[in-house]
């Protein structure tokens, strides 16, 4: 069996393609869900996938995690073609990535600590190490007081934050977020996006983020977390040039790529369909 080797987040060379979709198509019971999708995400970049409900965003993320196999085309992550891997190799691959599910998908029979430390316990890490790393991850998402709580005792936003902590416990080089702000109020949504932004700028993790809210894309594209100042700042331009947030947008419509580019281009677009998202 080939052992999957993945670089740590801080070993990723910015600008090198880490996620690559090549003419990917998938259908369920004869109904096409994704049709000939091709795109690339470079190391350290965040690609925001925008689309209506049922446009295939979740399917795209599941393909990128090897949870689904495409009918045709290739999904290449960190240089590995997922289509050529068997289930055991895929399990090994998935241990090196983070996935935040739509509703959090926390194990409801386990408390927050056990949920976050699930992967560490599977790897038979010593309990003391597990506890220290769980507390660190929970501190990052500001959920340490919920250490012993069960998912049923948490609000929707809290569950997403714990889910983010679970995904980042091993500091994966790639993180997928499936509609992390769906069904949340604007304030909580902003908190979640700020968390994702901090994670992006602190660890340099490459991300795919599926959402139907354009605000999420703008939040990620227009703000940067400055570790020195420990603050989230708007992107700015000075003598060194414009300080970009490493974020781009991909709009999916009826299983096909409708738009790919920067948020600024999207903002200027006169296309009626894209304007719907803006308005």
């Amino acid at each position: 069996m080939r052992k999957f080797t993945a670089p740590a987040a801080n070993e990723i060379i910015p600008g090198e393609p880490l996620i690559h979709f090549e003419n990917v198509s998938i259908a369920f019971e004869g109904v096409p869900v994704l049709n000939n999708i091709s795109f690339t995400v470079d190391g350290g970049q965040t690609k925001v996938i925008i689309g209506e409900s049922g446009s295939g965003k979740t399917v795209l993320l599941k393909l990128a995690a090897g949870l689904l196999r495409p009918d045709s085309g290739r999904v290449i992550i960190m240089g590995h073609n997922l289509g050529e891997m068997n289930e055991v190799e895929l399990l090994d691959f998935r241990r090196r990535i983070g996935f935040v599910f739509q509703e959090g998908a926390l194990f409801d029979s386990l408390d927050v600590a056990d949920n976050v430390s699930f992967r560490l316990r599977e790897e038979r890490k010593p309990p003391r190490e597990c506890e220290a790393r769980v507390r660190e991850a929970l501190r990052f998402v500001e959920m340490e007081p919920a250490y012993h709580k069960f998912p049923a005792e948490l609000s929707g936003g809290m569950r997403r934050r714990v889910s983010i902590a679970r995904a980042l416990i091993d500091q994966p080089p790639i993180v997928y977020y499936d509609s992390p702000t769906a069904g949340l109020d604007p304030v909580t949504s902003q908190t979640i996006i700020t968390l994702i932004l901090r994670l992006r700028d602190l660890s340099g993790a490459t991300s795919l983020l599926a959402t139907h809210r354009l605000q999420d894309a703008f939040g990620l594209a227009n703000f940067i977390f400055e570790p020195d100042a420990d603050r989230v700042l708007p992107v700015w331009e000075d003598a060194d040039g414009r300080h970009f947030a490493p974020t781009s947008v991909l709009v999916i419509r009826e299983g096909k790529i409708y738009f790919e580019g920067e948020t600024q281009e999207l903002l200027k677009s006169e296309d009626a369909y894209l304007r719907q998202f803006l308005e």
């Binding site: 599941k62 995690a65 949870l67 289930e87 399990l91 090994d92 998935r94 241990r95 990535i97 996935f99 599910f101 739509q102 509703e103 998908a105 926390l106 194990f107 409801d108 699930f118 992967r119 599977e122 679970r166």
Partner: peptide, 17 residues
């Protein structure tokens, strides 16, 4: 219930069979 709340997918995503 675990399937419909994506807990089984989450388990697979965490690298557990």
């Amino acid at each position: 219930s675990m399937v419909v709340t994506e807990q089984v997918d989450a388990m697979r995503a965490l690298g557990t069979d």
